[in-house]
Structures are given as C-alpha cells and as structure tokens.
Design a protein around this nucleic acid. Structure first.
Length: 426
RNA sequence: GUGGGAGUAGCUCAACUGGCUAGAGCACCAGAUUGUGGCUCUGGUGGCUGCGGGUUCAAGCCCCGUCUCUCACCCCA
C-alpha cells in the first residue's frame, strides 16, 4: 500500500501519543485531587445519548444542535443517538434517571472524557476533544456559584498555568432576560445598518450574541447598548452581587464583562469564562455558569445547578506557550537486563519475570542485538539501573547491578536486586 | 459550511529566474571499543518531492483539480 493510500485518523481527531500523556495525566490527576477538595465525586456517563437530550438541553436553534452533532440511527425502531457534544446534559440526565435527588438534595459531580463536535478544526479546537467538568446540582445559592468559579481558578493555579483571567456576568433568569431581549432589540434596531451580516442575522436568532461580536463596528454598537446588568430583576441582581462579593472576599480577582454571553440555552444568571491571553482567537480555557431550569426541563424536580467545563486542548496549548509544559517524561523502566551472549537469553527472560513479580519495572532486549546496542537502549530508555548477564553470572548466581548515572556497580544475589532498587538512591 | 496559508527523509528544513543522480542537521542502525551506555569520529538505512492531470526539450519549483494539515470566520471547551 502506498503512503497516500494509508488510512489516517479522522479529521480533527488526533492521537494522544505517549509523549502527550505526561501532560494529559498531569491535568487529570490534578483535577481529581483539586475537585476532591470540594467533595466532588466522579461520574462517567456514556459517550452516546438519545439525540433528544441534546436538542432539549443545548437548544434547538444552536449551531451545535443544528449542524455539529454526530448523529446515528440506532436499532430497528430507528431511534436517534448522538455522540455527546458536551456532558452537562448527560450528567443531569443520569441524576434524574437514578433519582439521585431523592437520595439527597445536593450533589457535586465531575467528569473527564471526550466530546464530539463536527466543526472545522483550528487552533485549540478539535472534533474530538477532552473536557474536564464539574456540576453542582441541587442548589440555587450564590455560595455555590462562587465556589464553582473559585474551583475552576484553583485548578488552573494548581496545574501551574499563570495568566488566566476570570470573566463573569449575569444573564438573569428567563423572565428578566426576555425583557432585556426586547430592550436590546429596541436599542439596536436603529443601528442595524452598522452591523456585520452575521450580526444582522443574530438580531433575530440570538440577539445577545451581537454583544460579543469581534467586528470593530459591531463592538462599537454593542458598547453603546444597554447592559444586562441594568435589566436584572431584584432577585437576580442580588444573587449576582452576592456572588461577586464572595469572590472578592476570597481574594479572587474577576472582571465583570457585560458582553459575556454563553452559547447554550440552558444557562441562567451567573455565567463565567476563564481565558488565557497566549492563546489565539479561541482563548477560553474554561466556560461555565448556572443552569437552574435544566433539571426540570429534562423531567426532574426543580433544582438549581452550577457547572463548568475545562477544555483540555486549549489548556495544554496555553501551558506549552508558557513555561509550564517542561515536564520530562518518566522513564518506562527502572532496570534494563542486557544479555552478554545469546545462550543466556532465556535466563535473562526468567530473571526479568522474577523481578517484575517483585514489583520492578524491567525491560530487556528481544532482538538478539549486541551488548553495546542493549546498553544504548538502556540509556535511551532512561533506566536507572542495568545488569549485564553472561555465563559467569548464571553460573555464580551473582549479578552486578550498575547505576547508569554513576557507573557504580554492586554485586548482588538475585533475591537482593529488588530490595536494592527500592532502597533510597545513593 | 466560508476564506487565507502550507504540503520535500521519522522530525526540523535546504535545493538560484524551471536545468546534473533532490541535500543537511537531528533521530535511527552499525563500526572505531571481542563483558558495558552517554561524548567524539567514521560509515549506513531511509524520498513515486501528498495525489492526479496539464504546460515544457526539461517540473520539487509554473497552471488546474483533489486530499491533508494549518490559521481565521461561524460557533464554541
């Protein structure tokens, strides 16, 4: 088969290679540790869901639902299932399905896993991408909003990413938002001519999106528009102010951004985004907010919720652009066994198995290569120790354990090798 | 889906206004060193120049198509 005929990974779905895994695992283990500090528990919903879940959750008129979902017919009945484009709806579905809120009224759940959106890939955006997310389900209290934002910020601190800015806004409840929608339309209507074609389309489709358009002319118009903040009803306003006060008291710097709106229909009140300036046009590393009506909309009881999702791809990009990415790969083995001659390979193999049974990470040569080639492999592998095994060692039952960094050797019986490796480095 | 840029060895890149057998560094393999890796030196493997067509005496280079990657738009983590 010629090179051009070879099968390659689907567009926008790259392999995570061994060299990528140190960083990926760093993010995942840090997330698990930090989320545990706030008593979050892990949940792992399926990658596919009934298509209707996303249509109802994310919103029928969103781009994701309209054109970015991987949807398949399932079974004889022709049911429609979809690879999840995000996980909040899945988590909520699971909570409802398993009657969690009847067991206790408040849950903190986190997930780590791949999402799928059929978009054109660009910097920081892929078709399959990992998200790390938290959902606090069953409370409408501003304390939970604040904790959620602080938790997201803490995650980025702990992974060693500096330069993250936190933007927050309140988009109100459905009642004050629909009032604001009309006010915004009224304010923008006379200036339609100044807007870009996309924004003229947004006017009917989702007028709030005009607020975060990147076209300079639209920005100018948006700046003059009345902010949401002035249209919040008293409850929403009080909620937002409490959240801001809690953040401030916790020493968390945030920027209130009147023009921060989020794409999904389910968001209410607090919305937030964490972004990094080293990134390109797609600079968000985390997005989230409150969604007080989703549980009820999906058939559960009334239950307020707050959550966020960290984008693993942009986070890694941001780390790589700073200094935080310098994480040397851990060696894959502690000890390399080199065979001096071919007639002892079987003995080497036996010793390797014995030591693995004693918990030592052992690698050896399987290709009958020269001693020198084997030592080169040991070095490349980063193994801390090596043992050269020949007829003398087999006959005498004593092995010379060589520390690669120093060249120092010590003579040991087979049973003493594993304990010696576990001893503190000399 | 729309627009810009780019595709040469495993990787990073050369190859003059179109002109000899497409080169280098790194990596890989081996030797210098017959019981020991790194450093050094020497040698070697590795290319349908993404793919298909066209122009030309001659194409890695020009033209068309196509695919892939990439950046941006829409949207979004």
């Amino acid at each position: 088969m010629s090179k051009s005929e070879r099968i390659t990974a689907p567009r926008g779905m790259p392999d995570a290679l061994p060299s990528d895994m140190t960083l990926l695992r760093h993010l995942e283990t840090t997330a698990r540790r930090v989320f545990a500090l706030c008593a979050y528990e892990e949940i792992r919903p399926p990658l596919f869901e009934d298509t209707r879940l996303f249509v109802r959750g994310i919103g029928e008129a969103t781009d994701i639902v309209e054109k970015e979902m991987y949807t398949f017919a399932e079974g004889d009945a022709g049911d429609s299932i979809t690879l999840r484009p995000e996980a909040t709806a899945s988590v909520v579905r699971a909570v409802i399905e398993h009657e969690f809120l009847k067991q206790k009224g408040f849950w903190k759940l986190y997930y780590i896993g791949p999402m799928f959106r059929k978009e054109r890939p660009q910097a920081g955006r892929l078709r399959q991408f990992d998200q790390i997310g938290c959902e606090a389900i069953g409370s409408s209290e501003p304390l939970v909003d604040a904790e959620s934002i602080l938790l997201a910020a803490r995650f980025f601190r702990e992974i060693g990413l500096a330069g993250v800015t936190v933007k927050v806004n309140s988009i109100g409840c459905p009642t004050c938002r629909s009032a604001y929608r009309e006010a915004l339309r009224a304010a923008l209507a006379p200036r339609m001519g100044e807007l870009c074609p996309d924004c003229r389309n947004r006017f009917d489709r989702n007028v709030f999106r005009i607020l975060d358009c990147k076209v300079p002319a639209c920005k100018a118009v948006a700046l003059a528009a009345p902010p949401m903040r002035e249209h919040l009803d008293p409850d929403c306003k009080a909620h937002f102010e409490t959240v801001l006060a809690l953040l401030s008291q916790s020493g968390q710097t945030v920027a209130v951004d009147d023009h921060l709106v989020r794409g999904f229909d389910y968001y209410t009140r607090t919305v937030f985004e964490l972004s990094h300036s080293a990134l390109g046009a797609r600079d968000a590393v985390c997005g989230g907010g409150r969604y007080d009506n989703l549980v009820a909309e999906l058939g559960g009881p009334a239950a307020g919720c707050v959550g966020f999702a960290v984008g693993v791809v942009p986070t890694i990009l941001a780390l790589q652009k700073g200094q935080g990415a310098a994480r040397p790969a851990a060696p894959a083995a502690d000890l390399y066994l080199a065979a001096f001659s071919d007639d002892v390979r079987a003995e080497v193999f036996r010793l390797a198995e014995r030591l693995r049974g004693e918990g030592v990470r052992v690698e050896m040569d399987y290709e009958r290569r020269s001693l020198k080639a084997q030592m080169r492999s040991a070095n490349k592998l980063g193994a801390r120790y090596a043992i050269v095994i020949g007829p003398d060692e087999i006959a005498g039952g004593e092995f010379k354990l060589k520390e690669m960094a120093t060249g120092v050797e010590q003579r040991l019986k087979a049973e003493a090798i594993a304990p010696a490796l576990r001893a503190p480095t000399t």
